[in-house]
Design a protein around this nucleic acid. Structure first.
Length: 275
DNA sequence: AAATCACTCAACCGCTATAAG
DNA sequence: ACTTATAGCGGTTGAGTGATT
């Protein structure tokens, strides 16, 4: 058997909290501190489940909550953090003292989304709607502004979490080199061109941008042209093609040898290879 | 003044990772 | 080792409220 349940689900209140319930919760946490939400409702004399108590405290009753309208600075910071972190509201809230993840999430959905749309930006990707595809290329100005403001605010507010200038440079360098060497085989030619164009703009501006689009691909090599017979005997020249090496899907842990070859598991006859 | 619409936000729901039994 | 509950998170809902017709 596992744990015993935290509360009698059938005897719990739902819906809006009353002032009395709030006061009970506040009093209890003042005396005993946060945590152990499982036993809190019974101990505090509340007919609520622990989950509900936790939410009420975190989102509404905590004394360090700021409440009130969001400032313009907070708006911009949320937008920038969202462009880096996506819908990770708890991580964003951690960078905004006095604000809760729920509050920020609500504010995003009711205000900021609209704000970005009115700026012609897609709230999810933070890229311009004017671009033709989902892998739209932001304007050079937008890149410059975003990256400048981003680092300016990030260095003061989110310095503990966000990458340093050196890290940004390293990431930027790695990504650009990878694309220039044709190492990314998962993108289509068009996407690759767009990525290259985007990085070109960034290079031109000399203001690297944190790109969190990750792709996994195998290094590809180009085959030689081949001349062979087709089905009715005519000689045809097959153009060169991009080919990825066979991929090892070994799921066991092992060590490569000094030459960097596959682990012993992979060399065994039972290993599956896919190309 | 009443009806309808639009908006806000607290609270709930469902999921995943982890802890406890 | 397994089962079950908890903690925490993001998504969604719906009651309350103000604006508009």
């Amino acid at each position: 058997m596992g744990r015993s349940p935290c509360c009698e689900k059938t005897h719990t209140n739902k819906g809006a909290w009353t002032k009395e319930e709030d006061q009970r919760l506040i009093n209890y946490i003042r005396l005993h501190g946060e945590g152990c939400w499982r036993s809190l409702p019974t101990s505090a004399g509340l007919l609520r489940c622990g989950k509900s108590c936790r939410l009420r405290w975190i989102n509404y009753l905590r004394p360090d909550l700021k409440r009130g309208n969001f400032s313009e600075d907070e708006d911009e910071l949320i937008i920038k953090l969202h462009s880096v972190l996506g819908n990770k509201w708890s991580l964003i809230a951690a960078r905004l003292p006095g604000r809760t993840d729920n509050e920020i999430k609500n504010y995003w959905n009711t205000h900021i989304k609209r704000k970005l749309i009115s700026r012609g930006l897609d709230p999810q990707t933070h890229r311009s709607f004017n671009s033709s595809s989902s892998a739209a290329i932001p304007t050079a100005n937008a890149i410059a502004t975003t990256s400048l403001d981003f680092r300016k605010n990030a260095s003061t507010v989110a310095s503990k979490m966000l990458p340093s200038q050196n890290q940004l440079n390293r990431m930027y360098k790695f990504k650009t080199e990878s694309i220039e060497e044709g190492n990314c085989s998962s993108s289509t030619t068009e996407e690759t061109q767009q990525q290259q164009q985007q990085h070109y703009y960034q290079k031109e501006q000399n203001k690297p941008v944190l790109d969190l689009e990750l792709s996994i691909g195998l290094p590809v090599t180009r085959t030689d042209q081949k001349t062979e017979s087709n089905w009715h005997g005519s000689r045809i020249t097959k153009p060169s093609a991009l080919v990825a090496p066979r991929m090892c899907l070994c799921w066991q842990l092992g060590f490569q040898n000094k030459a960097g070859e596959f682990c012993s598991n992979c060399r065994s006859s039972t290993t599956a290879f896919y190309s």
